[in-house]
């Protein structure tokens, strides 16, 4: 989908055309759901969040300025929803995250051991770093696109990706060649 097509569909959807919005959802659901699956781990939770993100986008289409791509915008909404949900879940989640921070290296199987999925692996990273790594290394977003989606400075995103990648490689027992 070209940026021109996307702008036309957004304009039509703003006017209430659900068919245009359906095209936008169909075109971008893979990126948004893929990002949220990597960010929150569970597929069902991630898909619920993705649905909520698209729904929020539908309600607030008039606020979409077109500076970022539509998928960056919806991923940004999904990221904020995931963050709010995690905060709402409170202490139990924080305790789990703290445990993962401490036990991360031992909890990740090394090369040749049992398979590990992206959600489990990325849970070892702090939230901002995880989001940047998931977008740039998992979903193929450019650093600039990820910066727009996460509302972070470009330099911060680059640094998060670099540090996150190094940490994950260390957890997997990989070395830089």
């Amino acid at each position: 989908m070209t940026p021109h097509d996307e702008a036309r569909l957004v304009a039509e959807a703003r006017g209430g055309a659900t068919r245009a919005f359906a095209f936008l959802v169909e075109a971008h659901q893979q990126a948004v759901r893929g990002f949220l699956r990597r960010l929150v781990g569970g597929h069902a939770d991630a898909d619920d969040l993705a649905q909520e993100a698209f729904l929020t986008a539908w309600r607030r289409l008039d606020r979409f300025e077109g500076r970022a791509s539509f998928r960056s915008w919806v991923c940004g909404i999904g990221y904020r929803l995931a963050r709010d949900q995690r905060r709402a879940r409170g202490r139990a989640m924080r305790r789990d995250a703290a445990w993962l921070e401490e036990e991360g290296p031992a909890a990740i199987p090394h090369a040749g051991e049992a398979a590990v999925d992206a959600g489990t692996l990325l849970a070892a990273l702090p939230e901002d770093q995880r989001a940047a790594v998931a977008l740039c290394l998992g979903c193929g977003f450019s650093h600039a696109e990820a910066a727009e989606a996460l509302a972070m400075p470009l330099g911060t995103v680059k640094s998060h990706v670099q540090r996150g990648r190094a940490r994950l490689r260390a957890l997997l027992g990989e070395t830089d060649d």
Binding site: Q29, R33, R37, R38, H43, D47, A118, L172
Partner: peptide, 8 residues
């Protein structure tokens, strides 16, 4: 690992 897990 990071490339896996995308929906269709």
């Amino acid at each position: 690992i990071l490339a896996e897990g995308d929906p269709p």
